[in-house]
Design a protein around this nucleic acid. Structure first.
Lengths: 294, 294
DNA sequence: AAAGATTGTTATAAAATGACGAACAATATC
DNA sequence: GATATTGTTCGTCATTTTATAACAATCTTT
């Protein structure tokens, strides 16, 4: 239990697993591949298990190696964070903050401007903003802060609600005039639909439930284009409210099924727990939550 | 940012902070105090901050040292857990599990029997059971599993609901006969009360709220003795239901204020996230939750 | 108040560990 | 089948870590 920890081996293994190659890892660490090779071997001996399948040309983690990697990497990140925390300046905020956000209007018009303003106010801080890649493994991620839609499954993360997104079904007045009446979701079957990544449209009204599986129509995974399509009278679109509130107010679009239950999706600000303890990260969190609330 | 991690210094510092002494830490690590002294000094140089106040006779963590210690220790535990996870036998469960539970009937009659049965079924497992010390710092604790009453504040922990404890106010039939009628909490002011650690008794009934601050009566921080006192007709006791359900069924005790809102406290099974990933810990968790539900 | 014991620090030498470069074996690519 | 690239092995060297012992500072004891 009080087994000695073979530190350098861990660092070597984590680096190799991160880079997927001894050569790259050696480069990144400023060390030699020979050294890394030996250390990973030693770590394997130390643990008594195999961590990597290695054929000279391909490197793959064993199942155990996979699990060990995730955990060890998290620990290494935590150690870095610990040092970061201890050395941070309590007064002035400084250092790097890496943010990942969903793209589209949310990222570009909601998040980005707030980040810019924050950076202007804290010249010691360096913000890096990336827009969402399909899967971001948050626990071991390279990000300090992630803006995500939907409920958070992983309970070990610090998740703060940022905003509530309401789903709306909209079409242009022209479209509605020129097509047969739409009063309930079932009527959608004969309509022209504009859909993005979500193909199953679910509706509820008290205990009444209705669901449509969108198969054909205009498909584009981009909210702005979907809005354009709806404005052009191409059909009925399912969109987050922030895309269309203006249009609805101006009467350029008309909302359908407004008498049905409102479907809301939370927008969360998520953070690995260790990172959340850094002053600068918490300050930016507060800033974002404050800024969005306005 | 990619600051090199001074591993050995971290191990030394964590051990010293844990033991509160260089000498003890050296003994525990099987190393020399001279070595530790130097490494902690090096770590401090490496971080550029002071971690310990040291007068030859007394050792104290600096504020920064305190924070750094908690985080670094968590990381070290995580690394140990990672090795533990990787080397665990996927088939047979084995290893140590350290459990901390609230005492009293819950610990002795609810938890302990289940642990015993579990251990009997898994001879490779070694269970250590301690009853609750007032404050157990779970994140950095030496426990794998903790049974706790009340809501869990720390969101970074895995907390599974185990049971719901209902608070009941009881007295013996004799007591009730021989004292003036009690129909609502305010009547308690003229009564003889048996109280434990909780001195403020709060009641609600819809929007009506009543609260009593117990100042005198019989004080004993032990549920069993409180029950005995109530049975003996000493007065009115505030007790968890599991102490008195039998007595209530048999008519040895009578419940008061049953028409008021029921106050329930959750009993949780709490676990540091890293530890929860170990087969044996998860197996015991499931076993407990399953066993209690019966 | 002074001696004694115990604590953390320093200094120096010995041991262990890590690091590098070159030669090597294995494999994917051309 | 030749070539380039990858990971491994080996011998050597540099660095780090460790231990022993002497030392200074403090608390305890008498």
């Amino acid at each position: 239990m009080t087994n000695n920890i073979y530190w350098t081996g861990i660092r070597a293994f984590v680096a190799v697993a991160e880079h997927g190659s001894f050569t790259l890892a050696a480069e990144a660490l400023g060390s030699s591949k020979a050294s890394l090779s030996q250390q990973v071997t030693n770590l394997e001996k130390n643990l008594g298990i195999q961590l990597l399948y290695r054929t000279t040309r391909q490197l793959r983690l064993t199942p155990q190696g996979e699990g060990y990697f995730k955990r060890a990497q998290a620990a290494v990140i935590q150690l870095q964070t610990a040092a970061d925390w201890a050395t941070q300046d309590a007064q002035a905020l400084s250092g790097d903050i890496r943010v990942n956000s969903v793209g589209g209007v949310i990222g570009e018009e909601l998040i980005a401007p707030l980040l810019i303003k924050f950076q202007q106010q804290h010249t010691g801080i360096n913000i890096q903003l990336d827009f969402s890649s399909p899967k971001v493994d948050l626990l071991n991620s390279e990000y300090d802060l992630v803006v995500r839609m939907g409920a958070m499954p992983d309970s070990t993360l610090v998740a703060r609600p940022l905003k509530t997104i309401t789903t709306r079904y909209v079409a242009s007045p022209e479209y509605i005039k020129t097509h047969e009446a739409i009063s309930q979701p079932d009527d959608l079957k004969n309509q022209s639909l504009i859909y993005g990544s979500i193909r199953e449209w679910r509706f509820s009204k008290g205990k009444k439930i209705s669901s449509i599986n969108v198969q054909q129509g205009f498909h584009i995974s981009n909210g702005r284009v979907m809005r354009e399509a709806a404005l052009a009278g191409l059909g009925i679109a399912r969109l987050a409210d922030i895309y269309v509130t203006e249009d609805l107010n101006q009467g350029l679009l008309i909302e359908l099924f407004s008498d049905w239950d409102i479907h809301q999706t939370p927008l969360h600000l998520v953070c690995p727990p260790a990172r959340y303890q850094l002053n600068r990260v918490r300050a930016l969190s507060d800033w974002l939550i404050n800024g969005v609330a306005q």
